[in-house]
Design a protein around this nucleic acid. Sequence first.
DNA 1: GTCTATATTGTGATAGAC
DNA 2: GTCTATCACAATATAGAC
Lengths: 208, 208
Amino acid sequence: MSEIQSTEDAILTAARKVFSAHGLQGARMQDIADEAGINKALLHYYFRSKEKLFEIIFQEAFSKFAGSAAEMMTSEAPLFEKIDAFIDKYIDILLNNLFLPGFVIAEINNKPERMIDLISSKGLRFDVFERQVAEEVARGNIRAIEGKHLFVSIIALCVFPFAGRPILKSIIFGNESIAYDAFLQERKQEVKRFVIAALRPDNQINEI
Amino acid sequence: MSEIQSTEDAILTAARKVFSAHGLQGARMQDIADEAGINKALLHYYFRSKEKLFEIIFQEAFSKFAGSAAEMMTSEAPLFEKIDAFIDKYIDILLNNLFLPGFVIAEINNKPERMIDLISSKGLRFDVFERQVAEEVARGNIRAIEGKHLFVSIIALCVFPFAGRPILKSIIFGNESIAYDAFLQERKQEVKRFVIAALRPDNQINEI
DNA sequence: GTCTATATTGTGATAGAC
DNA sequence: GTCTATCACAATATAGAC
């Protein structure tokens, strides 16, 4: 949190802002330079090209975006603990990085192969999560559900309100309102309740 | 389904493909021309500018993307019917337009004000859906939940697997696999089960 | 309507002084 | 390390022949 920022940091900060707002193609080196309070030539002095600079920003953004999901996927901690911790941590991250989901989704969709190369997701195994879910189902602790679907659904419930923020804000709250921020704040509690409710065993009623 | 396509239609088809794959900024008029089997000049003859052409494609895409959600929001049909019909219809649309969610989310995030202007969402009222949910809650038919959150959650569960397809495909199934398409096919059933389960009243157990 | 140039502007990137 | 000036090229858009 030092007040004085090195030129390199100033560039990275500016690049984060401009790239996440306009994407790789939409971003202009001039805008990044302006935002950083320097000129274009310096950008190329510190980072060779627009591409190189972008790669750094994207990789960093993707780790933030997917890091805790990867942890929920691979950790050996008890399932319910993992899910609860994930929702807490993840929505906090998104609240502090409102543009993250839109940025990552946009870039991944525009250049899938390229962006997936930038992600070192090698070695991530999904079987831990799947096994844990299967175990809980077998024990009757949760209703029958597949691990893959549960995993995707949990992330969906967390991410989508942020990824679709501009549209949802406008459609649900009307353009004038700022109430959407409050709505996002409530999401943490809401997603937890929703997931827990969705997982309650079917036979609760019949077990009388 | 006529075999012969007018030049105008050929351009629109090509534009759909190129814009949805690369976005407004990433798309090249040359690519659209090549894809349509004509030259750049003709693009400008039929549609004045890249912007104009894009607006047509985006508006069309957005209607597809949000049309049935708007219907779920405003229709006076019974809540459960609406939700069930929405999930069916919506996931069918997405299955037939895999790039739609990524495209719309990307553009909306890159130029929010501009894209929202292109959407004539004026006059769409959210109170119908909210009222219906409140009524079902009051009757004890579903557990306590806010209409806004339920609405966003349903859409999230449907859209996110498509919007995040390239990442999810790679992370959950490993890059080699084509199993993700089967996964998407299952989503319709899965989302229905998930939402219905999540809405079961809390007091089912206590009502013994 | 459709084409081949061509004009024009954007913007990423480099050269070279300080 | 930082700047100004400039290059080189890519991409939208138009002119004008057929």
